[in-house]
Amino acid sequence: MANADFRARTSIRRNQAWTSGDGNTLLRLQEDGNFVVYRQGKAAWQADNVYPNGDTAAFELNGDLVVYDSNGRQIWHSDTGGNHGALFSVQDDGNIVIYNADGRPIWQTDTAG
């Protein structure tokens, strides 16, 4: 299967996830507000300082992956803004990667295995 790639603005809310093409990798905004990567059902990475306040996660048009609280305040981000045309990829290998418009990785969770 292919990786699940996103170029346009996409978002999830609590208890939703972006999933890889093969279904083995998830980037989930949990019901408890934590933002976690799961590989084959096991937690592999979590965003700092999100739990328990994460309410919405969005891949913005400027290339930034952001978690917002219930008041719409940004509480975590990948610090990749300013990269219009970036690609957000939930990969079958277990890694979550943001690629710039030239295809160069600019952020990742380092959870490939």
Rank of each mutant, 00 (worst) to 15 (best):
R13H: 03
M1F: 09
V66C: 09
G54Y: 03
T25S: 01
L26W: 02
G41I: 12
R9H: 01
I106C: 07
L61G: 02
N62H: 00
A47K: 08
D79Q: 15
F6N: 06
D48H: 07
D48W: 03
N3T: 06
F59M: 08
Y38I: 04
L65K: 03
I96T: 08
R73P: 00
R104V: 13
W18M: 01
D55Q: 08
I106P: 04
I96A: 07
A8N: 12
Q16S: 06
F6T: 11
A17R: 09
T10N: 05
Q16Y: 05
F6V: 12
A47L: 09
N95C: 12
P105I: 13
F59T: 12
I96S: 02
N34P: 04
Q74T: 15
T111Q: 05
A4W: 05
A43D: 06
D79C: 09
Y68S: 01
R14V: 04
P52I: 00
G82Y: 05
D92V: 13
N3V: 07
W76A: 03
W76D: 03
A43R: 12
S89F: 13
S11W: 14
A101T: 10
G94V: 11
V97L: 10
G23L: 09
R14W: 01
W18L: 02
N24L: 03
D22I: 11
N71G: 06
Q91F: 07
G54D: 10
H84I: 09
I12A: 01
F88Y: 13
V97F: 14
A112E: 11
S78F: 09
G113H: 03
G72P: 00
K42T: 13
P52A: 12
N71H: 11
I12V: 15
Q16T: 03
G85L: 09
D102M: 14
N95E: 15
Y51W: 12
D102C: 10
W18Y: 06
S20G: 02
N62R: 05
G82S: 07
F59L: 10
N53L: 04
D5M: 10
R7V: 14
F88E: 03
L65P: 03
G63D: 07
I98P: 02
D32P: 01
H77M: 11
L26N: 00
T56C: 00
L27P: 04
T109S: 12
G103W: 15
T10Y: 04
E60H: 08
W107F: 15
R13E: 10
I106E: 08
H84M: 01
G54N: 05
V97R: 13
D79N: 15
V97K: 14
L29V: 04
E60K: 11
I98K: 07
S89K: 02
Y38G: 00
G72I: 01
V50A: 02
S11I: 05
Q16I: 02
R28K: 06
G81D: 15
G103K: 10
A4F: 04
Q74W: 08
A57R: 06
L65R: 09
Y99G: 05
P105E: 06
Q40H: 06
V50D: 07
W107P: 08
R9I: 03
D92R: 08
N34I: 01
N53R: 14
V36I: 15
N83Y: 08
N62S: 13
Q74N: 12
S78I: 13
